[in-house]
Amino acid sequence: MESFFLYGAIYLSLIMILSLYRAVFGPTVLDRMIGVNAIGSKTTALLVLIGLIYQRVEMFVDIALAYACLNFIAVLAASRYFQKRKGLYDEHH
């Protein structure tokens, strides 16, 4: 079963490269945000998988939960930032 988890983790990180393409070459800033968000949700699963590989799930679950929290907050903050600054949204003029 350990090797199954190992191959799963490797496969997951290969998929993350596909999302990374969007994060690097995305035509707009918001496309990059989609890419980063997709990588973040995959990382949450990857962390628990790594925990199963090393047989220390109880430790890695905490890290995964913290990562999920911070990923959500980062995406929300970034979307708010691009709403209000950068001239994307300006209603005074």
Partner: peptide, 20 residues
């Protein structure tokens, strides 16, 4: 894994989430 630094960052992030 954890302690003051990590927990402090998460608590600060919660307050920042409220501010956002």
């Amino acid at each position: 894994p954890g302690g003051g630094f990590q927990g402090g960052v998460i608590f600060g992030a919660a307050i920042i989430l409220f501010a956002i």
